[in-house]
């Protein structure tokens, strides 16, 4: 039973329809769904074992047997790209997901909790945000050593402060809204206010931000793997494939191209989808589009 009608909730109706009506959002959705499907179905759709070596067959150009050709160790590039999608999305979604949950909880606590706790948390958020991302990542990797778990940890640590700050700001704004004040005046407990009213209203912008961050994280993973600081070989990270392709750029340019295309597409897809979601979920944008 609700004491007060939440004015923000009705705006969320028709999100899917609105997204499909937006060409950019639709394109993003199609690309993202394709990559997610590729990642989920990798064991069944990859034509070869992505780490099986066949050095006699190295640098084969695309053909019927190897649609995307082979790399410097004769590994099938299409299979590596497909498995690479699983790795890239797995790392990106896992890390920003964890960061999102941490950011959500800490942001709500900071925004709705006591003042002293808010000040302490903001200090933590600001301290972490002030660290240059790439240098911070390099420092953590130097201490813990490269690897997938380290990579996820780095991304979580560099991402959650921004999410927490966003949620905190949203919470502070909403906490002073009339309907929240009315709830409090009618004796609603903090848990009810947070979970029933604040959480549904602050999650939208967080989803947009997370969606916009996924391509950044994919690029970060690829970049660190390219520098031998991310996913360890022979895992088929797109960054690893790019780095290995780069060393044979003259002999076999197709390797870099094959590794670059999914990276570009995934980045574009998540960006388009994020922008589409922003247009749909942002009240100002919504007003513009749904007028």
């Amino acid at each position: 039973m609700s004491f007060v009608v939440d004015p923000a909730l009705p705006a969320r109706r028709g999100i899917g329809r609105a997204l499909l009506a937006d060409p950019m959002g639709l394109a993003g959705l199609v690309i993202v769904v394709t990559f997610v499907a590729m990642a989920l179905l990798a064991p069944w759709i990859a034509p070869y074992d992505p780490i099986a070596l066949d050095v006699k067959a190295k640098f084969l150009t695309p053909s019927a047997a190897h649609w995307a050709g082979t790399d410097h160790l004769g590994r099938d590039l299409l299979s590596r790209i497909i498995w690479g999608a699983r790795l890239a999305l797995g790392i990106a979604i896992t890390s920003v997901g964890i960061a999102g949950v941490i950011g959500l909880v800490l942001g709500l606590v900071a925004g709705y909790g006591p003042r002293w706790l808010d000040s302490g948390l903001v200090l933590v958020f600001d301290s972490l945000s002030s660290l240059p991302m790439i240098f911070f990542a390099l420092a953590v990797i130097t201490v813990l050593g490269p690897g997938t778990l380290t990579l996820i940890l780095v991304i979580v640590l560099v991402s959650f402060p921004a999410y927490a700050r966003l949620i905190r700001t949203q919470t502070l704004t909403l906490a002073g809204a009339d309907y929240i004040l009315a709830e409090r005046a009618m004796g609603a407990r903090p848990g009810r206010i947070i979970f029933r009213h604040l959480l549904p209203n602050v999650v939208g912008p967080l989803v947009i931000l997370i969606c916009m961050d996924i391509p950044v994280v994919i690029m970060l993973e690829a970049g660190l793997s390219y520098l031998n600081l991310g996913v360890k070989p022979p895992s088929p990270s797109w960054g690893n494939i790019l780095a290995e392709g780069y060393t044979s750029l003259r002999q076999a340019p197709h390797v870099v191209i094959v590794a670059g295309v999914p990276l570009v597409l995934a980045t574009l897809g998540f960006t388009f989808l994020g922008e589409g979601l922003r247009d749909v979920l942002d009240p100002r944008g919504a007003g513009r589009r749904w007028a």
Binding site: I51, A52, L53, V55, H72, L73, G145, P146, N228, K232, P233, P234, E244, T247, S248
Partner: peptide, 25 residues
Amino acid sequence: GTSQTIAQIIQANLAEAGITINIQP
């Protein structure tokens, strides 16, 4: 590139015998 290529081939060779190799660049 050469060192990393050799390392990956050795990694695959030794995997055939059941040895897991973690390459540390």
